[in-house]
């Protein structure tokens, strides 16, 4: 059954008709064509689908879309500036080799963004805890942690 919903998506007010069984990930990907967030497992175990809802990093694959009603939802597509300039986190991910196959990257970046929004100067332990739920098979995490540290230092 579909229900009407309204929320703020990357700074814009939007409406949608979401099925009661539909996940937020599916709504973002299918209705809004925001395919940055990925389904890596569909069970909330890998973090590739991470988006930010009201300041919290969530696994959008297991969050019912309707629960985002009235919320502020941020996806990786909303990070870059209007002129296309990369967000400091995105830039640091590129510069530090934190991206290889890139499948986990949008989720990883959003987990990091949620952390930095909350804690502007996290230590390494805090960074690692924030991305613990984001699996990466390529990088071994080191360059990702370095990128997040550097972005934190650079961000105003």
């Amino acid at each position: 059954m579909k229900k009407h919903m309204q929320f703020i998506l990357n700074g814009h007010e939007v409406t949608a008709e979401a099925d009661t069984r539909q996940s937020l990930l599916s709504l973002l990907r299918e209705e809004f064509e925001l395919t940055g967030a990925k389904e890596g497992c569909g069970e909330g175990e890998c973090g590739a689908c991470t988006v930010i809802v009201d300041g919290l990093a969530v696994n959008s694959c297991i969050m019912p879309a309707l629960e985002a009603s009235g919320c502020r939802v941020e996806t990786v597509e909303g990070l870059a500036g209007p002129d296309g300039s990369l967000h400091p986190l995105q830039q640091a991910f590129v510069d530090f080799g934190a991206v290889q196959c890139g499948f986990c990257t949008p989720g990883m970046v959003m987990s990091a963004k949620a952390l930095l929004d909350e804690d502007a100067a996290p230590d390494e332990e805090t960074i690692r805890t924030a991305i613990e739920g984001n699996l990466c098979r390529c990088t071994g995490y080191k360059q990702i942690v370095d990128a997040i540290k550097t972005a934190a230092e650079k961000m105003p």
């Binding site: 990907r29 925001l34 395919t35 940055g36 967030a37 990925k38 389904e39 996806t75 990786v76 597509e77 990070l79 870059a80 990369l86 995105q90 991910f93 590129v94 510069d95 080799g97 991206v99 890139g102 499948f103 990257t105 949008p106 970046v109």
Partner: peptide, 19 residues
Amino acid sequence: IPRSDGAKKVTGQAIYIND
């Protein structure tokens, strides 16, 4: 030198088979 497909991947623009 940073990878040339980096920007595409950090912005969610890269198209995987899923997409």
